Simulated assay, not measured.
Amino acid sequence: MINTEGMVAETAAKIFTDLCGREIPHQAEAGAYPQELWDALVENGLLLAWVSEDNGGFAAEPDEIFGAIWASVQAASPVPFAETLLANHMLDQAGLAPASGSASFAFSGADIPFGGQVEQIVLFDAKQGTISLFDNPADERRHVDSLSPDGATRFDPAGKAALASAKTNFTGRAFEALILTVRAVQMASAIEAALNLSIAHVSEREQFGRPLSKFQAIQHQLAVAASESAAATMAATQAASACARNGNDPAKAWHEAVIAKVQISHSVEAVTVPFHQVHGAMGYTQEYDLHHYTRRLWAWRDALGNEHHWSRLLGAELAVASPDQIWKGVTTGEWIAS
Protein backbone atom coordinates (compact mmCIF):
# COMPACT_ATOMS: atom_id res chain seq x y z
CA MET A 1 0.00 0.00 0.00
CA ILE A 2 0.92 3.69 -0.07
CA ASN A 3 0.82 4.83 3.56
CA THR A 4 0.30 8.59 3.69
CA GLU A 5 -0.50 8.60 7.42
CA GLY A 6 2.64 7.07 8.95
CA MET A 7 5.30 9.13 10.72
CA VAL A 8 7.68 9.33 7.76
CA ALA A 9 4.97 10.27 5.28
CA GLU A 10 3.33 12.80 7.59
CA THR A 11 6.67 14.44 8.40
CA ALA A 12 7.47 14.70 4.70
CA ALA A 13 4.02 16.07 3.91
CA LYS A 14 4.35 18.78 6.56
CA ILE A 15 7.77 19.85 5.26
CA PHE A 16 6.51 20.03 1.68
CA THR A 17 3.39 21.92 2.77
CA ASP A 18 5.38 24.44 4.81
CA LEU A 19 8.39 24.92 2.54
CA CYS A 20 7.24 24.06 -0.98
CA GLY A 21 4.54 26.58 -1.75
CA ARG A 22 3.38 27.07 -5.31
CA GLU A 23 6.09 29.66 -5.98
CA ILE A 24 8.94 27.23 -5.21
CA PRO A 25 8.73 25.09 -8.41
CA HIS A 26 8.56 28.27 -10.50
CA GLN A 27 11.58 29.77 -8.74
CA ALA A 28 13.51 26.51 -9.13
CA GLU A 29 13.01 26.55 -12.90
CA ALA A 30 14.39 30.07 -12.93
CA GLY A 31 17.54 28.78 -11.23
CA ALA A 32 16.79 29.40 -7.53
CA TYR A 33 17.42 26.07 -5.78
CA PRO A 34 15.11 25.61 -2.75
CA GLN A 35 17.91 25.09 -0.24
CA GLU A 36 15.67 25.64 2.80
CA LEU A 37 13.40 22.81 1.66
CA TRP A 38 16.33 20.48 1.04
CA ASP A 39 17.95 21.33 4.39
CA ALA A 40 14.70 20.52 6.21
CA LEU A 41 14.54 17.09 4.57
CA VAL A 42 18.15 16.43 5.56
CA GLU A 43 17.75 17.69 9.14
CA ASN A 44 14.72 15.47 9.70
CA GLY A 45 16.61 12.41 8.46
CA LEU A 46 14.11 11.69 5.72
CA LEU A 47 16.77 10.96 3.11
CA LEU A 48 17.91 8.03 5.26
CA ALA A 49 14.43 6.65 5.87
CA TRP A 50 14.99 3.73 3.44
CA VAL A 51 18.37 2.84 4.93
CA SER A 52 18.96 0.15 7.57
CA GLU A 53 19.76 1.09 11.14
CA ASP A 54 23.22 -0.47 10.75
CA ASN A 55 23.99 2.19 8.11
CA GLY A 56 22.59 5.11 10.09
CA GLY A 57 19.02 5.06 8.82
CA PHE A 58 15.79 4.12 10.52
CA ALA A 59 14.59 1.33 8.25
CA ALA A 60 11.13 2.69 7.53
CA GLU A 61 8.61 0.34 5.97
CA PRO A 62 8.31 0.64 2.19
CA ASP A 63 4.66 1.70 2.39
CA GLU A 64 5.69 4.79 4.39
CA ILE A 65 8.49 5.54 1.93
CA PHE A 66 5.95 5.49 -0.89
CA GLY A 67 3.67 7.75 1.15
CA ALA A 68 6.49 10.28 1.55
CA ILE A 69 7.24 10.14 -2.18
CA TRP A 70 3.53 10.66 -2.89
CA ALA A 71 3.62 13.85 -0.77
CA SER A 72 6.68 15.19 -2.58
CA VAL A 73 4.96 14.90 -5.96
CA GLN A 74 1.73 16.47 -4.70
CA ALA A 75 3.81 19.57 -3.91
CA ALA A 76 5.56 19.47 -7.33
CA SER A 77 8.77 19.38 -5.30
CA PRO A 78 11.81 20.41 -7.41
CA VAL A 79 14.38 18.54 -5.30
CA PRO A 80 15.70 14.97 -5.79
CA PHE A 81 13.84 13.49 -2.84
CA ALA A 82 12.68 10.16 -4.31
CA GLU A 83 15.93 9.82 -6.25
CA THR A 84 18.11 10.24 -3.15
CA LEU A 85 15.90 7.87 -1.16
CA LEU A 86 16.27 5.22 -3.84
CA ALA A 87 20.00 5.83 -4.34
CA ASN A 88 20.64 5.45 -0.61
CA HIS A 89 18.52 2.31 -0.52
CA MET A 90 20.58 0.84 -3.36
CA LEU A 91 23.81 1.61 -1.47
CA ASP A 92 22.36 0.03 1.65
CA GLN A 93 21.62 -3.19 -0.23
CA ALA A 94 25.34 -3.49 -0.91
CA GLY A 95 26.28 -2.69 2.69
CA LEU A 96 27.61 0.73 1.74
CA ALA A 97 27.14 3.96 3.65
CA PRO A 98 24.57 6.40 2.22
CA ALA A 99 25.54 9.25 -0.07
CA SER A 100 26.94 12.32 1.64
CA GLY A 101 24.52 14.65 -0.12
CA SER A 102 21.93 14.66 -2.88
CA ALA A 103 22.11 11.65 -5.17
CA SER A 104 20.44 9.96 -8.10
CA PHE A 105 20.75 6.58 -9.78
CA ALA A 106 22.15 5.30 -13.04
CA PHE A 107 20.69 2.07 -14.37
CA SER A 108 20.73 0.33 -17.74
CA GLY A 109 21.87 3.38 -19.69
CA ALA A 110 18.78 5.39 -18.77
CA ASP A 111 18.90 9.15 -18.38
CA ILE A 112 19.66 10.17 -14.82
CA PRO A 113 16.84 12.20 -13.23
CA PHE A 114 18.06 15.38 -11.52
CA GLY A 115 21.48 14.54 -12.92
CA GLY A 116 22.30 18.21 -13.39
CA GLN A 117 21.70 18.94 -9.71
CA VAL A 118 22.80 15.99 -7.60
CA GLU A 119 26.22 15.75 -6.01
CA GLN A 120 26.63 11.99 -6.40
CA ILE A 121 25.55 9.15 -8.66
CA VAL A 122 24.83 5.57 -7.61
CA LEU A 123 25.53 3.12 -10.43
CA PHE A 124 24.17 -0.42 -10.57
CA ASP A 125 26.15 -2.76 -12.82
CA ALA A 126 23.87 -5.73 -13.48
CA LYS A 127 26.58 -7.76 -15.24
CA GLN A 128 29.06 -7.42 -12.40
CA GLY A 129 26.43 -7.43 -9.65
CA THR A 130 27.92 -4.32 -8.06
CA ILE A 131 26.73 -1.04 -6.63
CA SER A 132 29.13 1.91 -6.91
CA LEU A 133 29.07 5.49 -5.70
CA PHE A 134 30.59 8.26 -7.82
CA ASP A 135 31.01 11.98 -7.46
CA ASN A 136 29.08 14.05 -10.00
CA PRO A 137 31.21 17.17 -10.62
CA ALA A 138 29.29 20.05 -12.16
CA ASP A 139 31.79 20.50 -15.00
CA GLU A 140 31.41 16.85 -16.08
CA ARG A 141 27.63 16.64 -16.23
CA ARG A 142 26.45 15.79 -19.74
CA HIS A 143 22.94 17.22 -20.06
CA VAL A 144 20.31 15.65 -22.28
CA ASP A 145 16.96 17.02 -23.43
CA SER A 146 14.17 16.30 -20.97
CA LEU A 147 10.52 17.23 -20.80
CA SER A 148 10.72 17.17 -17.03
CA PRO A 149 11.52 20.42 -15.23
CA ASP A 150 13.87 18.32 -13.08
CA GLY A 151 16.27 17.81 -15.99
CA ALA A 152 18.44 14.80 -16.75
CA THR A 153 22.00 13.86 -17.66
CA ARG A 154 23.98 10.88 -18.89
CA PHE A 155 26.76 9.35 -16.84
CA ASP A 156 29.79 7.47 -18.16
CA PRO A 157 31.83 5.76 -15.41
CA ALA A 158 34.72 4.96 -17.76
CA GLY A 159 37.96 6.28 -16.34
CA LYS A 160 36.31 7.44 -13.11
CA ALA A 161 37.26 6.14 -9.69
CA ALA A 162 34.34 5.09 -7.51
CA LEU A 163 34.15 6.52 -4.01
CA ALA A 164 32.86 3.13 -2.85
CA SER A 165 31.85 -0.12 -4.50
CA ALA A 166 30.57 -3.50 -3.33
CA LYS A 167 28.81 -6.62 -4.51
CA THR A 168 25.06 -6.94 -4.05
CA ASN A 169 22.73 -9.91 -4.11
CA PHE A 170 20.07 -7.86 -5.84
CA THR A 171 19.53 -8.60 -9.52
CA GLY A 172 18.74 -6.26 -12.36
CA ARG A 173 15.16 -7.48 -12.18
CA ALA A 174 14.97 -6.51 -8.50
CA PHE A 175 16.16 -2.99 -9.21
CA GLU A 176 13.80 -2.69 -12.15
CA ALA A 177 10.95 -3.55 -9.79
CA LEU A 178 12.05 -0.95 -7.23
CA ILE A 179 12.59 1.84 -9.73
CA LEU A 180 9.40 1.16 -11.69
CA THR A 181 7.38 1.07 -8.46
CA VAL A 182 8.78 4.43 -7.37
CA ARG A 183 7.97 5.89 -10.78
CA ALA A 184 4.45 4.41 -10.69
CA VAL A 185 3.79 6.05 -7.32
CA GLN A 186 5.13 9.37 -8.59
CA MET A 187 3.02 9.25 -11.74
CA ALA A 188 -0.19 8.32 -9.93
CA SER A 189 0.38 11.15 -7.45
CA ALA A 190 1.00 13.66 -10.25
CA ILE A 191 -2.18 12.59 -12.05
CA GLU A 192 -4.22 13.04 -8.87
CA ALA A 193 -2.68 16.47 -8.18
CA ALA A 194 -3.38 17.66 -11.73
CA LEU A 195 -6.93 16.32 -11.50
CA ASN A 196 -7.56 18.24 -8.28
CA LEU A 197 -6.11 21.37 -9.87
CA SER A 198 -8.42 20.95 -12.85
CA ILE A 199 -11.51 20.38 -10.69
CA ALA A 200 -10.72 23.49 -8.66
CA HIS A 201 -10.23 25.54 -11.82
CA VAL A 202 -13.53 24.60 -13.47
CA SER A 203 -15.36 25.14 -10.19
CA GLU A 204 -14.02 28.68 -9.82
CA ARG A 205 -14.03 29.98 -13.41
CA GLU A 206 -17.24 31.08 -15.08
CA GLN A 207 -18.32 31.28 -18.70
CA PHE A 208 -21.67 32.62 -19.94
CA GLY A 209 -22.67 33.32 -16.34
CA ARG A 210 -22.10 29.89 -14.85
CA PRO A 211 -19.13 27.82 -13.62
CA LEU A 212 -17.26 25.77 -16.20
CA SER A 213 -18.04 22.69 -14.10
CA LYS A 214 -21.71 22.97 -15.11
CA PHE A 215 -20.98 22.34 -18.79
CA GLN A 216 -21.59 18.74 -19.83
CA ALA A 217 -18.53 18.56 -22.07
CA ILE A 218 -16.29 19.64 -19.18
CA GLN A 219 -17.96 17.13 -16.85
CA HIS A 220 -17.40 14.35 -19.37
CA GLN A 221 -13.72 15.18 -19.81
CA LEU A 222 -13.04 15.25 -16.08
CA ALA A 223 -15.09 12.09 -15.48
CA VAL A 224 -12.82 10.24 -17.91
CA ALA A 225 -9.73 11.74 -16.27
CA ALA A 226 -10.99 10.83 -12.79
CA SER A 227 -11.49 7.22 -13.89
CA GLU A 228 -7.96 7.08 -15.27
CA SER A 229 -6.64 8.65 -12.06
CA ALA A 230 -8.39 6.01 -9.95
CA ALA A 231 -6.95 3.24 -12.14
CA ALA A 232 -3.46 4.74 -11.89
CA THR A 233 -3.66 4.98 -8.11
CA MET A 234 -4.83 1.38 -7.86
CA ALA A 235 -2.04 0.15 -10.13
CA ALA A 236 0.57 2.06 -8.13
CA THR A 237 -0.89 0.75 -4.87
CA GLN A 238 -0.73 -2.84 -6.13
CA ALA A 239 2.91 -2.39 -7.14
CA ALA A 240 3.77 -0.73 -3.83
CA SER A 241 2.05 -3.53 -1.90
CA ALA A 242 3.93 -6.20 -3.85
CA CYS A 243 7.21 -4.38 -3.22
CA ALA A 244 6.46 -4.19 0.52
CA ARG A 245 5.47 -7.87 0.64
CA ASN A 246 8.69 -8.92 -1.03
CA GLY A 247 11.05 -6.47 0.65
CA ASN A 248 13.92 -8.96 0.80
CA ASP A 249 13.53 -9.89 -2.86
CA PRO A 250 11.90 -7.12 -4.93
CA ALA A 251 12.34 -9.24 -8.05
CA LYS A 252 9.16 -11.06 -6.95
CA ALA A 253 7.30 -7.76 -7.36
CA TRP A 254 8.53 -7.27 -10.94
CA HIS A 255 5.26 -8.19 -12.63
CA GLU A 256 3.17 -5.80 -10.53
CA ALA A 257 5.72 -3.03 -11.08
CA VAL A 258 5.72 -3.54 -14.85
CA ILE A 259 1.92 -3.73 -15.00
CA ALA A 260 1.70 -0.47 -13.04
CA LYS A 261 4.18 1.28 -15.33
CA VAL A 262 2.29 0.10 -18.42
CA GLN A 263 -1.15 0.99 -17.05
CA ILE A 264 -0.18 4.44 -15.81
CA SER A 265 1.84 5.28 -18.91
CA HIS A 266 -1.23 4.50 -21.02
CA SER A 267 -3.20 6.89 -18.80
CA VAL A 268 -0.87 9.83 -19.29
CA GLU A 269 -2.24 11.06 -22.62
CA ALA A 270 -5.79 10.24 -21.57
CA VAL A 271 -5.52 12.62 -18.60
CA THR A 272 -3.12 15.35 -19.70
CA VAL A 273 -5.17 16.23 -22.80
CA PRO A 274 -8.38 17.00 -20.85
CA PHE A 275 -6.43 18.67 -18.04
CA HIS A 276 -4.99 21.19 -20.47
CA GLN A 277 -8.22 21.53 -22.42
CA VAL A 278 -10.39 22.40 -19.42
CA HIS A 279 -7.81 24.98 -18.36
CA GLY A 280 -7.94 26.63 -21.77
CA ALA A 281 -5.01 28.88 -22.57
CA MET A 282 -4.10 29.12 -18.89
CA GLY A 283 -3.00 25.49 -18.88
CA TYR A 284 -0.14 26.30 -21.23
CA THR A 285 1.29 29.33 -19.45
CA GLN A 286 4.62 29.13 -17.66
CA GLU A 287 3.26 31.00 -14.64
CA TYR A 288 0.47 28.50 -13.93
CA ASP A 289 1.04 25.29 -11.92
CA LEU A 290 -0.39 22.62 -14.23
CA HIS A 291 2.73 22.07 -16.32
CA HIS A 292 4.79 21.12 -13.27
CA TYR A 293 2.72 17.93 -13.17
CA THR A 294 2.04 17.23 -16.84
CA ARG A 295 5.63 17.76 -18.00
CA ARG A 296 6.86 15.34 -15.35
CA LEU A 297 4.21 12.84 -16.43
CA TRP A 298 5.33 13.02 -20.05
CA ALA A 299 8.97 12.55 -19.01
CA TRP A 300 8.26 9.72 -16.55
CA ARG A 301 6.15 7.90 -19.15
CA ASP A 302 9.20 7.44 -21.36
CA ALA A 303 11.85 7.15 -18.63
CA LEU A 304 13.27 3.63 -18.17
CA GLY A 305 11.30 2.49 -21.20
CA ASN A 306 7.79 3.44 -22.26
CA GLU A 307 4.65 1.29 -22.03
CA HIS A 308 5.43 -0.46 -25.33
CA HIS A 309 8.88 -1.54 -24.11
CA TRP A 310 7.54 -3.06 -20.90
CA SER A 311 4.47 -4.56 -22.58
CA ARG A 312 6.75 -6.50 -24.92
CA LEU A 313 8.84 -7.84 -22.03
CA LEU A 314 5.80 -8.80 -19.98
CA GLY A 315 4.04 -10.30 -22.98
CA ALA A 316 7.07 -12.42 -23.87
CA GLU A 317 6.98 -14.00 -20.41
CA LEU A 318 3.25 -14.57 -20.34
CA ALA A 319 3.29 -16.05 -23.85
CA VAL A 320 5.25 -19.07 -22.62
CA ALA A 321 3.22 -19.48 -19.42
CA SER A 322 0.25 -21.75 -18.99
CA PRO A 323 -3.22 -20.32 -18.34
CA ASP A 324 -3.06 -21.72 -14.80
CA GLN A 325 0.21 -19.90 -14.12
CA ILE A 326 -1.19 -16.61 -15.40
CA TRP A 327 -4.38 -17.01 -13.36
CA LYS A 328 -2.38 -17.74 -10.22
CA GLY A 329 -0.32 -14.60 -10.78
CA VAL A 330 -3.39 -12.43 -11.26
CA THR A 331 -5.29 -13.82 -8.26
CA THR A 332 -2.49 -14.45 -5.74
CA GLY A 333 0.45 -12.32 -6.84
CA GLU A 334 2.61 -15.44 -7.19
CA TRP A 335 3.87 -15.01 -10.72
CA ILE A 336 5.80 -17.38 -12.92
CA ALA A 337 9.56 -17.44 -12.49
CA SER A 338 11.59 -15.48 -15.01
Results as ranks from 00 to 15, higher is better:
residue 135 D to C: 07
residue 136 N to F: 05
residue 136 N to T: 05
residue 137 P to A: 11
residue 138 A to R: 04
residue 140 E to K: 13
residue 140 E to S: 13
residue 140 E to L: 10
residue 141 R to D: 08
residue 143 H to E: 11
residue 145 D to L: 10
residue 147 L to S: 07
residue 151 G to Y: 12
residue 151 G to P: 07
residue 152 A to P: 02
residue 153 T to A: 08
residue 153 T to K: 09
residue 154 R to Q: 15
residue 157 P to F: 12
residue 158 A to K: 15
residue 162 A to T: 02
residue 164 A to C: 09
residue 164 A to R: 13
residue 164 A to T: 09
residue 167 K to Y: 03
residue 169 N to Y: 00
residue 170 F to H: 10
residue 173 R to F: 01
residue 173 R to V: 11
residue 173 R to I: 07
residue 174 A to V: 08
residue 174 A to M: 04
residue 175 F to K: 02
residue 175 F to E: 03
residue 176 E to Q: 12
residue 177 A to P: 05
residue 179 I to T: 08
residue 180 L to T: 08
residue 182 V to L: 06
residue 184 A to Y: 05
residue 184 A to L: 06
residue 186 Q to D: 09
residue 186 Q to K: 14
residue 187 M to N: 12
residue 188 A to F: 01
residue 189 S to P: 02
residue 191 I to M: 10
residue 192 E to F: 04
residue 195 L to N: 03
residue 196 N to M: 11
residue 198 S to W: 10
residue 199 I to S: 03
residue 200 A to M: 05
residue 200 A to E: 15
residue 200 A to R: 13
residue 201 H to V: 09
residue 202 V to D: 14
residue 204 E to W: 00
residue 205 R to L: 11
residue 206 E to Y: 13
residue 207 Q to M: 14
residue 209 G to F: 09
residue 210 R to T: 13
residue 212 L to G: 02
residue 213 S to C: 13
residue 214 K to V: 06
residue 214 K to G: 06
residue 215 F to I: 10
residue 217 A to M: 10
residue 217 A to G: 08
residue 218 I to C: 11
residue 219 Q to V: 02
residue 220 H to V: 14
residue 220 H to C: 04
residue 220 H to I: 14
residue 222 L to F: 13
residue 225 A to D: 09
residue 226 A to C: 08
residue 226 A to K: 15
residue 227 S to I: 09
residue 228 E to F: 12
residue 229 S to C: 14
residue 229 S to L: 02
residue 230 A to L: 14
residue 231 A to R: 13
residue 233 T to R: 15
residue 234 M to V: 02
residue 234 M to D: 10
residue 235 A to T: 00
residue 235 A to Y: 06
residue 238 Q to A: 12
residue 239 A to N: 06
residue 239 A to Q: 04
residue 242 A to I: 06
residue 242 A to M: 09
residue 247 G to P: 01
residue 247 G to I: 07
residue 247 G to T: 07
residue 247 G to Y: 05
residue 249 D to Y: 06
residue 250 P to A: 09
residue 251 A to N: 01
residue 251 A to P: 01
residue 252 K to G: 05
residue 253 A to N: 05
residue 253 A to W: 03
residue 257 A to V: 06
residue 258 V to N: 00
residue 258 V to Q: 01
residue 258 V to D: 00
residue 262 V to P: 01
residue 263 Q to N: 07
residue 263 Q to T: 15
residue 263 Q to L: 08
residue 264 I to E: 00
residue 264 I to C: 00
residue 266 H to P: 00
residue 266 H to C: 01
residue 267 S to A: 15
residue 270 A to K: 11
residue 270 A to L: 11
residue 273 V to S: 11
residue 273 V to D: 08
residue 274 P to S: 07
residue 276 H to I: 06
residue 276 H to C: 02
residue 277 Q to F: 14
residue 278 V to H: 06
residue 278 V to S: 09
residue 279 H to F: 15
residue 281 A to P: 00
